[in-house]
């Protein structure tokens, strides 16, 4: 394992029931870089994120965060590790019974003994960073989709984590808000030297923020490289993805027919 990589995935294999989701993933994320994990629907990128967060156990292989094996840690080590991580989920995952301010403060209240006044100022600073100044007393139900996402950003950063994970930050947002979030991700990295992993399927945003891009396809990594390297790749799947072409898989007439008339075929 390289000395400066904060995330180290080796030979990761995961299953959902009998279905294989990942088939031997190897990946390193270096300190202070923004790594974008890309892939179409069903490519396993969300599940890979869940593995990185310790929410889904792999069938084999290992995930190391900050030099510690995620799935061989005891509860106490896991808590210690997760205090240095921040996650913004796709749907925001804000708690409906708390105001935005309370949502953002929650990790502080649970893990630190700071003065309530300090916590409030910290929450307001983070909300200010995501352009949500003054929204701290609103309830999540009063927020728009973009605001929920930004509030989730603020919450993920409240503990000044070393590792930040963003799940589909720009999904379902208008182009301007999504560009703002991209800017924000870049600024956070520059100011705090945070290592950031972003899962997305938005090409544009990926090219803007990524130091390196990892392309997933059918449970395998097609390639990991800089934006230029990805653009220059001559792999068919990558080019399809870049040109937004529909999947060009080999067309099997018999299989297609039996798919359409499935019941009959099996009854023969």
């Amino acid at each position: 394992m390289a000395g400066n990589s904060l995330i180290h995935i080796s030979d990761l294999v995961t299953h959902f029931g009998d279905k294989c989701v990942h088939d031997g993933i190897n990946l390193d994320v270096r300190k202070g870089e923004i790594l974008v994990i890309m892939g179409g629907s069903g490519s396993g990128k969300s599940t890979l994120m869940r593995c990185l967060l310790g929410l889904k156990a792999p069938s084999s292989g290992s995930v190391q965060l900050l030099g510690q094996d995620l799935f061989r840690s005891n509860r106490k080590q896991l808590v210690e590790l997760r205090r240095q991580m921040g996650v913004a989920f796709q749907g925001g995952a804000l708690f409906g019974s708390m105001t935005v301010g309370e949502n953002v403060c929650l990790p502080l209240r649970e893990h630190t003994r700071l003065d309530p006044n300090t916590m409030r100022i910290m929450a307001r600073m983070k909300l200010e960073m995501v352009n949500l100044g003054g929204a701290e007393n609103l309830m999540p139900a009063e927020l728009s989709g973009g605001m929920i996402k930004r509030a989730a950003f603020a919450r993920s950063m409240i503990m000044d984590p070393k590792l930040l994970f963003f799940d589909e930050p720009s999904a379902g947002l208008d182009p301007i808000t999504s560009a703002e979030l991209d800017e924000l991700i870049l600024r956070i990295r520059d100011a705090m030297q945070t290592t950031i992993v972003v899962v997305t399927h938005e090409l544009e945003s990926a090219f803007r923020i990524a130091d390196r891009i990892t392309l997933l396809h059918a449970g395998k990594i097609l390639m990991t490289g800089s934006v230029e390297e990805v653009q220059a790749s001559d792999n068919q799947h990558i080019q399809d993805m870049l040109k937004r072409k529909p999947r060009s898989e080999a067309f099997d007439v018999d299989r297609y027919l039996s798919q359409l008339t499935g019941d009959r075929v099996s009854r023969q």
């Binding site: 869940r50 967060l53 310790g54 929410l55 896991l78 808590v79 210690e80 997760r82 205090r83 991580m85 996650v87 989920f89 796709q90 749907g91 995952a93 804000l94 708690f95 929650l106 990790p107 649970e110 893990h111």
Partner: peptide, 16 residues
Amino acid sequence: IMRTSEQIDALECMAI
């Protein structure tokens, strides 16, 4: 609903 909207996952990730 907290489970389906990833709120319980979020709690775990916040080490709560």
